[in-house]
Simulated scan of single mutants.
Amino acid sequence: MYKLNLDIAQFLKDYWQQKPVVIKGAFPHFEDPISADELAGLACEEEITSRIVVTQKDNWEVIQGPFEDYDNYGETHWQLLVQAVNHWYPDSQPLVEAFRFLPDWRFDDLMVSFATPNGGVGPHIDNYDVFIIQGEGQRRWTVGDNTPQQCRGGNPNSPLVEDFDPIIDMVLEKGDMLYIPPGFPHCGETLTLALSYSIGYRAPSQQELVSEVADYLLDKNLGQQRFTSASEPTNPGIISQDHQLGIMSLLSQLAQDPASYQVVLGKLLSQNRFELDICEGEEAYSIDDLQDAFEQGAGVNRIGGLKVLRLEKDAQSRLFINGEIYDLPNTPETMLAQLSDHVSFDCETALALCEHAEVQQLLLALINQGLYYLSDEEEA
């Protein structure tokens, strides 16, 4: 269990998406949820996104995983990064739980890095919020102000930026945490062998929203309304300002219609960027199997990283799970809240939920799809 030593209300008011901050001792008595060897083992797997960054003079080389061995990289100047560790390593989930004061739809993944002395990824800017928790070892972090930055070496395609004047320059030790909002340049330099944990939060871009809206309209054969006008310009070769605004208002009408945007948002925000560790069984469970398992003391858990979301003031009674819609027209709002707010249920809670036939069928379907799994009661 990880308890975050943070005044959450003050953090949300003064820092969240506004400015970076270091919280010393954010996790008192912090214990690494994964070892360097276990992390290296995950990076051997084809389906897990990993990379090694090698620090060279004024440059950084990126090698994409999977990796069979690490002997060629030496004892300094490199860093291993593994994405979505929470999907594949259940013991890391309690660290993620410490940050659920922020909504699940924003959460991206838990990235874990193992770095040798002088290892790092170079000065860069992220387009997401990140909490960096220091595990074993020490890393020095510098963070610059949210001002325009030059790409490294004048190369517009470089993910790196030129060196910056720091507004934060701090060595993080075990249990310390650094928060960085989008747009602030930062750079980490490893001082000793170190494990670090990055909890990332993303919001959709305009490109992603427009793409999702377009796909939805095409799939459902909607969005057929066309522009009409009451007057025309006198010059044939001009697009009048009234016509410009009128045409673009067709998009704003969609954005103001819940029937048009709620499905789009629910599906988009419940998806994951990284592959999930689906745990589908060899044989499908029946209702009787499920009931018997709960009566024998089994609980039920979500797989790591799975998002179960509901929309406030939704036009329908439903959940959005992993980009799919699950209609639950007869399920009370309180049960929808239970299902979306909790990642696990003990046997007694599961039995109570299954007294509602619609929820029972939902849990059965999710277990048979490998999105939920039965667990010992102490795991739930």
Rank of each mutant, 00 (worst) to 15 (best):
S158F: 04
E348F: 08
S198A: 15
S211I: 10
N86L: 00
P329A: 07
P103M: 02
M335W: 06
G25M: 06
N322M: 07
V22R: 03
N157A: 11
L12C: 01
A26H: 05
E379Y: 07
W78N: 14
L254M: 13
Q253W: 05
I367W: 01
E189Q: 14
A350P: 04
P159I: 05
F274T: 02
P103H: 05
A357F: 04
G183P: 09
L363F: 03
L290S: 01
E355T: 04
V359N: 01
L42F: 10
I199E: 02
E38D: 08
P33Y: 10
T116Q: 11
L178N: 07
F227C: 14
I52M: 09
L193A: 13
Q244M: 15
C279S: 10
K174R: 14
L110T: 01
G74C: 12
P148W: 13
V121R: 02
W78S: 14
Q93V: 13
D327W: 00
F99G: 02
V21M: 03
N221D: 15
F345L: 06
Q360D: 05
W88Y: 14
A203I: 01
E378Y: 14
K3N: 06
T228H: 14
E283K: 00
I125T: 11
L39H: 08
V359E: 01
R302C: 12
R100S: 07
